[in-house]
Computed example of a mutant assay.
Amino acid sequence: MLVRDESPLKRTPLHALHVARGGKMVPFAGYEMPVQYPAGVLKEHLHTRSAAGLFDVSHMGQLALQAKSGKFEDAALALERLVPQDIVAVPPGRQRYAQFTKDDGGILDDLMVANFGDHLFLVVNAACKTEDEAHLRAHLSETCVIDSLSQRALIALQGPKAESALAKLCAGVSAMRFMDSGPRQVAGFDCFVSRSGYTGEDGFEISVPAEHAEALVTALLDNADVLPIGLGARDSLRLEAGLCLYGHDIDTTTTPVEGALEWSVQKSRRAGGARAGGFPGAEKILSQFEKGASRRRVGLRAQGRAPVREGAPLFVDSASSEAIGKVTSGGFGPSLNTPLAMGYLPTALAENGTQVFAEVRGQRLPLQVAAMPFVPNTYKR
């Protein structure tokens, strides 16, 4: 018997502000979130690329991880039991992209990990945050204290004018470089600020106590360069940037190597490294580093004008009956005025320039494997 989930959608601390500014609210990861504002997805996307866009990402999970010994290295080594990244080597005031992996090498979630001196600050995906916290508690509670920072909001300010907009409210922010992270005062509020984001643009993510979120966002939106941006443009921006969406481009059935995320696993954790292995799925993942994987995530550019959406099967030619892969993300790239997609193909067909075909409504549409990001990133390194 099917039991319908009647649980009400949660709301972020910025819900009233979204409604007041004409946000079109939709269900997303258990929350009521703005998919767009009156300007529309296309204009919001292009505004972020040319000026600054403000995103509410308060549905994401925020966690603090501290070793009971009080030593950063003990917390870092503990987390390394669950991720294939080198956490010990993250300097104070810096952050690193990571993945929680399974015993078979699949990805449970991807996350950001920052070194805040005496503890780690983690940001995890909204749809996985309950499971992620349980995963941390199940494996690390003996040696670490895990705090859910549920009373904090999280906003992202992205685009070429993000720095100038934030600098008006946060002293010293212009000196930050890509992946710098730490406590900062923003508009008089105690925040955590990282120079990072999910658009391929230079920008920042700002964690702020929930009770101050609306005041901070209002102060940022008072700047004419800054517009509120919804989930629709957030998705098209990250697609142009070639960034994975968990549950779509990577999931429990994909390894970091299959997902083209080798760059995120430092040499110290690979075979022969100082702290090689020791994480779930290490045997399979390290074997794929050495011998390669049978499939790979690739960028795909349409050779026509029709968008190719998630789930479309991929074929080696226009007549074959057996699919060789599938599209995991797809849509229109406003910056390039062309359809873009990502998907999985056999590694032998993953070279840039290879032609494949997607089946859309009974038709085979030609696609070409293309380098990612589709739009060059503008991170301030």
Rank of each mutant, 00 (worst) to 15 (best):
L300C: 00
D249H: 03
V327I: 03
A260D: 13
L227E: 13
G292I: 12
A282P: 11
Q303M: 14
L314S: 04
I229Y: 00
R296E: 09
R305D: 12
A241D: 09
A306Q: 10
R297F: 06
D225C: 07
S335Q: 07
S321E: 13
G299K: 01
S321A: 11
S318K: 15
E258V: 12
L239G: 04
P307E: 11
K284M: 08
R297T: 04
F279H: 05
P256G: 00
L286D: 04
A312S: 08
A302N: 05
F332I: 08
V316T: 12
E240Q: 15
L314T: 09
A323N: 02
R295G: 01
V327Q: 04
E262I: 13
L336Q: 04
G230V: 09
Y246F: 13
R270E: 14
G330M: 01
V265T: 10
H248C: 00
S329H: 04
G259V: 10
A271T: 15
R269G: 07
G299A: 02
Q303K: 15
V257H: 08
R275I: 15
S236R: 15
L245R: 05
K284P: 06
G299E: 09
R234E: 05
Y246P: 10
G311F: 11
S335H: 10
A319V: 15
G277R: 09
G259T: 13
R275N: 14
G311T: 08
K291P: 06
G232F: 10
A319T: 15
P334T: 06
S320A: 10
Y246N: 01
T254W: 14
L314H: 09
A312D: 03
G325E: 06
A260F: 11
S236N: 13
G331H: 02
G325C: 06
R234F: 05
A260H: 13
E322C: 01
A276T: 14
D249F: 01
A271E: 15
S329D: 02
L245N: 09
C244S: 06
G230C: 11
G242L: 10
S320E: 14
V298T: 05
I285E: 05
T255V: 11
D225A: 09
L245D: 04
A276S: 14
Q266C: 00
P280S: 07
L286S: 02
R238C: 01
A323R: 10
A224R: 15
L336T: 02
R275Q: 13
I324A: 03
I250G: 00
H248Q: 07
G330V: 01
C244W: 09
P280E: 11
Q303S: 11
S287F: 07
F289E: 05
W263H: 15
T254G: 00
A271N: 14
K267P: 14
K291R: 15
L231S: 12
G277T: 08
G273A: 00
W263N: 14
F289D: 05
N337S: 06
T255A: 01
L261H: 06
S268G: 11
A233V: 09
A282M: 06
I324D: 06
G277Q: 08
I250F: 02
V265M: 07
S287N: 12
I250L: 09
Q266W: 12
